[in-house]
Structure formats: C-alpha cells, structure tokens
Design a binder for these strands. Structure first.
Lengths: 259, 259
DNA sequence: TGTACATCAGTGAACGCGCGTTCACTGATGTAC
DNA sequence: TGTACATCAGTGAACGCGCGTTCACTGATGTAC
C-alpha cells in the first residue's frame, strides 16, 4: 500500500530512449528539471505556496516563461513534486533521527523525542514547505495518490517505536480505554502490526493523537498561535509530547529541570 | 489584556456625526458594510482565503469594483474583519455549548466534549473560515492586535472548565509531571487563575495540549490527513480528546460502546 | 410645507501589474552514416 | 574523421484572464433653512 521512500518520480517523467546507451540530452534534461524544482522551492520559501508561479521560477532562472514547459507539464505538476519532496525530506529526517537514537541505545520516549525534535527543526528551517503539506490545501489543487506513501513516513517511524515497545512488553495505556472498538482502517492497523491488529485497539488511537500533537504543536508555533502564551517553545514541545507519550503508557522519566 | 467578545469593530469605523440624532445615511452605510462582509464570507466559502478578491465581492453584489471602497479601506481590512468574525463565531459557539452543558448538569469531560464537538461541527460547516484562522497564514497579511481577544475565547472556555474542576478538587495530573517549571507567560496563567499561578505548572501545559488536539484533529480531518486512516471521525475525535483529558486528570468514564 | 444646497453613493475608465499556457520560430547540438 | 540531418532547448509574441486601487464624474438623497 505504501510506496517506496526516496526517489520522487521526477526522472520517471522522461522516456528512456535507448536503455543501454548513455544519453547526454537526457542527462541535461534531468539536471535542468532538478534545477527548476530547486528554484521553485526557493520561490516557495520566499512567497509561500499560494504565490508560487511558473513565471517567477522562470525569471529566477533567467529564462523565458515558456521555457520551463519543456520540463514541467503545469503548475499543478510542479506543486505535486514539491509536496512529495517535502514529505520525503521530513520522512528521511525523521528516519535518520530515529536510527541515530537507536544506535546510541535510546528507546521509548527518547526515540520519540529524537524523532519529534528532528521534524520540528526541519519545519522551523523550512516553514513554507511545512505549511505546504500541513497547512491549508492549495486552492484548486487536488493531491494525487502518489503523495500517500511519502506522507506516511513519519507515522511509520512512530509506529515502529510503538511496535518495539509493545514487543518488549513495556507498553500498556492507562485505563479506562478511550475506545473499545477500532476507529481506524484495517490497512492502517496492518501497517503497524500485520498479525495482531486486534491488540492495537485504544493504543492505535492514542498513537494518532501523538502524531496530531507533533504536527499540531509545530503548526501552532509556526502560525503564531503560541504567541503571548508559550515562552520556551522547545521545552513546551517536549512537554506536549511527554503528555501524550505518558498517555500511551511510555515511561517518560522525570522532566529535565532546565529548559 | 483580552478584549471583549462580541462586536467586531465594524461599526467603530464610522464616525458618529451627531450622537443623539438619528442618521439615515449612517444606517445605510452600516447595513451595506455588513452586506459586503457577508458577501465576502460567501466568496471565502467558495474560493478560499487566497482567492478572496474585492472585485469578486463587488461582482457578487452587482456593483462596480470601486464601489466597495466606500465601505472597506482595503483587502487587508476585509480579511481582518473576516478573521475576527470567524474567531468570534467559533468563540460564541463554544460558549453557548458550555453554557448548555453546564445548565444540564454536566461537568468535567462532558463539558469538554460538548465544547469540542460544537467547535468541530462549526468547522465542518464552514471549513474555509476555519482554515482562515487555523490554516496557513494568508501571504502578505499580518494579523493586527485586534484579533488576539477573539482568538482567546475558546481557550478561555476550556480554562474555565479546568478551573471549575480544580476548585472542586477533582483534578490532579498523572505523575511524573511533564515539566517542573512554567513554560507559559504570566499573562496566560493569570488569565486562567489570577491568584495562584504557581499551582498551574504542569497542568497549564497539559491544557494547551488539549487545545492543540482539539484544533489539530479538526485540521487533520478537514485537510485530509485522516483519509485512509480513521474510519469513524466523530468517535475518533471524542477519543482523542479523552486521551488528553485523562492525561490532565479528568475522570473520563467508560467509552461509549457504539460509535 | 417647500426649496436650495451640500453630501456622498455608485459609475466607468484607467493604471500598472501579474498570471498560466500556447505556438511558430531559430539555432545549437547530438547522432548516424 | 567529417558531414548532413533530425532533434529539441529556448525565444518572443500573443491570448485571455484576473487583480488592487485611484480618480474625476453624475445624480440621487438627506438636511437646513
């Protein structure tokens, strides 16, 4: 169900003319397509998703506006590429953070905090890209199926952490349960633990709350909803995640005394 | 610090020419300003915040585009009015829901669910208005100070519920605490309980998580991030709020057996 | 009660700007012989 | 190794559209006498 991480499908746009031959024009094509997408990302960073225009991208590259149509079918296609690449960038950031945490012996709450902090850091360094995927949908744009896989990468990392904790018997949510019937799709539960989806009831819903708080808190911070309310955003972010982790049955330890 | 709920400041734009006299032109002005704002809200509902244009509003009213400038200084002013009115609409919905819940004898989790459901219902009926205030900031637009008060209305309702539970001694968050130092502004804490801000440490942070989950879950639902994941959105929404309420020390009771 | 006048709502044209997309073209460049 | 040709990258003009905002105007309407 979930597509592979990594490549964005950019290259697959072009038809390989003769597979074994090496092809200078094709290489130029691919390189320039990349250049255009990178320029578009810069435009996005400066003017936001709603203000992204093909003409501005062309201008930035010192090229006439119609020239970019050699490489990009339409504005919508460009948006799709940017969305997929943003999801993939967030996803691989989170995956690396978790790997680093695991290989330094962390588990449980420490893995969660490592992943969550890496996503927040990414979001703060690229707020418009974060807003592109988690903010208001771009009007008139409908995300295609191909965004589903990349969008699932961070949730999958969180799932893996939950699964590992479950397997080592360290996880049992507080009682009473918030739900006794599953409120999620069988596909979603299967993606977490294929064999025993029944066991996830209640914990699965709590895990989605974790994901919601991770994204929601970053969104609140970036969009100004914590202004005049929260002083130390890094410490608050950790605290917010601890609240939900605790509610999932994680041992959250004692809070750091300093921010 | 927080301004009064209610009036939006629309009328205050106009200078009362002679206070005691009644003034037909002024009445016409106010009425037509309202008509324009209402038409703008309809435009917003159809095309989203980024697509909101004064010319489209004028067209909708069958009037030449320059005519609306008699009533509205600029597109930004119109946006500000719409934002304030959206916050106020959400706020008064939540306040009414809480009043109704209280007067039917509810407390604790039932009040929280009543308020939260009312906000979700509002958001589902007016998704673009919800996105206007909780989605990506409109590019090039900076929200003025006057939005702060209306934006705080729902959080204030939630605060009141927390305060009431605290006063009756029913609330003590799980241990360990997620923070031992306050991560919020003194103003924010004072707005919740003026006299004993120290006592709020840990609970205050958990309360902001409640607000984040309330808004974040609605946002996820409206923006499509629950597609292919959550089946029963109403039941999941309740469950998500129960997770955080439980983490605040509320007695959440048993989950409803049916969705 | 009637009339003159000041106010001001709405018009229409314009300015200067931006957008996505198409299309016939020219000239460089890679490829096949 | 040299040349002819097909490919195709990038140009420039254009189409048709939309936007926010300004400004001189005209004619209706409320007000003051």
């Amino acid at each position: 169900m979930l597509s592979q991480p990594g490549r964005t499908g950019l290259a697959s746009t072009s038809v390989p003319s003769s597979p074994a031959t090496f092809n200078a024009r094709q290489i130029a094509r691919d390189t320039l397509t990349r250049t255009i997408v990178d320029a578009a990302r810069d435009e996005l960073a400066e003017h936001g998703a709603a203000g992204l225009s093909l003409r501005a991208v062309a201008r930035r590259l010192g090229v006439v506006s119609s020239a970019v149509y050699r490489y990009i079918k339409s504005r919508d296609e460009l948006l799709t590429v940017l969305i997929i690449e943003a999801y993939d960038a967030i996803g691989s950031t989170a995956e690396s953070a978790d790997e680093a945490a695991r290989s330094s012996g962390s588990d449980g709450i420490d893995r969660i905090l490592a992943v969550a902090r890496s996503v927040r850091d990414w979001a703060r360094s690229r707020p418009q890209e974060f807003a592109l995927v988690f903010g208001s949908p771009v009007p008139g744009y409908r995300a295609p199926e191909s965004t589903v896989g990349p969008a699932a990468r961070v949730p999958m990392v969180l799932s893996a952490i939950v699964t590992d904790e479950l397997r080592s018997g360290r996880l049992s949510p507080p009682t009473p349960a918030v739900t006794t019937v599953p409120l999620t799709t069988v596909e979603a539960r299967a993606a977490v633990i294929g064999e025993v989806p029944g066991e996830l009831t209640d914990l699965m819903e709590r895990a989605i709350v974790l994901w919601t708080v991770l994204v929601g808190t970053i969104t609140f911070e970036l969009f100004g909803h914590l202004d005049n309310v929260v002083t130390d955003r890094s410490a608050y972010y950790d605290a917010a995640l601890r609240v939900v982790a605790q509610a999932m049955g994680f041992d959250i330890g004692e809070p750091r005394p300093d921010a």
